[in-house]
Structures are given as C-alpha cells and as structure tokens.
Amino acid sequence: MAKKRKHSEADAASQKKEEVAPERPKRTLLGWKGKKDDQVKESDSTTVFRNKEKVLVTCSRRINYRYRHLMLNVVDLLPHCKKDNKVESKSSKGATLNELVELKSCSSCLFFECRKGKDLYMWMAKSPNGPSVKFLVNAVHTMEELKLTGNHLKGSRPLLTFSSNFDKDPHWKLLKEMITQIFGTPKEHRKSKPYHDHVFVFSIVDDHIWFRNYQISVPHNESDKIARGGLDKMTLIEVGPRFCLNPIKIFAGSFGGPTLYENPFYISPNQIRSMQKKKKAGTFVKKVKAKTRRKIHELENPLEQDEFAEMWKE
C-alpha cells in the first residue's frame, strides 16, 4: 500500500508540475515532433471504445426459491456479472446498495427484491450517476423447467433483438439502452467465449417487456472448417429463463433521485389482491341483502288465503 501511495503522490506531483510548466513539444531522434501528429494520436486513442461493464447481481432477504433460481439463471447468462450476498431490504437499501456496487467496482446493478414471498421486483440501475428502473416481474419460468430443451455455451456473447416499438417513446428508448448495456456481454471479456450461439429477445407487448432466450442451432458442414452454415435451415430452441417486466418507475439517480417516469397503468399486486378480496366479501353481503329484501317483500305483499289449504287437514 505504501508504495502505491507514494506512486500516486508522485503522480500528483508530476501533474502539478505539468500544470505549472508550459507545454513543450516532445523531442524525437530526428528533432522536434510536430504538434499535428500528436493531436491525431490523441483522437486515435479516443476512438477505441472499450466496454467495461460489470453488473452486480443480488437479491433481498426472504426471497422465494423460484425467484432465487431465476436470479441464478441470470448470473449464468451474464459472464460479466458479480454475485453478492443477500441484502436486507429496508428503506435505506438504496444507499447500502450504492455502496456495495462501488465496493465491488461494478458499473451497474440488478437487484431482485422479493416482497411477501410472492411479489418480485427487479431494480436495474447504472451505478454512479446513471438512471435506475424498478420493474415488477411477472410470468417467471426458470431454466430448470424441462420443457425448455435448449442449451448453449456458458459465456458466449448473446445477440440482442429488440422489437421496433422500443424506439417509440423516450422511456422505452432509455430502457433499451440500459438493457443493451447490462445484458450485452462486453466484447473480449475474459470469461466470454468467441462464438454466438444464443439470442435474447426483448419485446414490448401490452406495455410489458418480455424476455426470451433461444439457442441457435445451425446445421454444420463438417468439411467447412470455418463453420458457416445455411442460414435458411437455422432453427431456435428455447433455453429459458422466461420473464416479463412491467416498468413501474424510472429514477434519475441510482436507486433514488427524482422520478423521471411513472407507469400510469400500474397497480401494485397488494392493491389487486385487496380488491379481489373485497369482491369475494361482497358476494356474502349481497346474499344476506337479497335474503332480507325477500323477507321484506314477503311481509309487504302476503299471499292470499288458499281456499284448499285446509283440505288435507283433519
């Protein structure tokens, strides 16, 4: 540590010196180097873009096994992610999560929050100052389900397909960008593999984002060493997991900040449940009411005496 600190100090010192000293053209063997060349070099260095995305994946305490498996599947799909311990979901979880993300030197976070053991919320956040989104997760199927028969390399970079309605509204645009950054595996990541054998589907249907993961199987020509098969014979086999994201809110900061978007159609699952319960309760109340009404009706208009009523009585 000490050495490092020294180094950094020296660096800082040199920076200060540079600030003070006027810039001088660098010297080469043949003479002074032209300034123009230098500028070109700088622009070259900026053109090389390197994606250094790292995603922290965690969940809240008391998470359902099914949702935990979903999280583990997501971990399997993203070779550029780091899994961490469960986080207590309190009101102050935003701050702790931000700290955690920084500690792990990640640039984004996927946080699976389970409430009441049945509702799953997913937070998708860009860490230092990017936006964060809260989704409600529906229709979860994990990879372990046997009807999903595909399989693919662990860590191969996925192709991301988006339906065209992602470009319709600004909030969908933002979500698309976030998804490409978080779900796309960085090029030449050390854990990634060089081939593409699966494809992610992100599609907006009914204002929800649906996720699917397919294996790409192309018939191979054994003689063809470079392995370029016929694209027409290509088939896809689903690998899983499946889930459906319902965006609730978009915040400007990571895990907090001013709200940029609010889903106007969203009702929380708690509300839905309470409404359903109320309806159920209503049926009994209605029955009782109907009975009392009937009684009142009978009392108000009594039947006229039947002349044969006494016929069978002795």
Binding site: T46, T47, V48, F49, N51, R157, P158, L159, L160, T161, F162, S163, S164, N165, F166, D167, T180, G184, P186, K187, H196, S203
Partner: peptide
C-alpha cells in the same frame, strides 16, 4: 464510436 460488434443489437419490426 462504439461499433455494432460491441452492442450486437438488432431491431425487428413487429
């Protein structure tokens, strides 16, 4: 300057 190879995204018309 991020190339397509970095993103690998495709937009498909529904």
């Amino acid at each position: 300057n991020a190339k397509w190879v970095d993103k690998l995204t495709v937009d498909i018309e529904q």
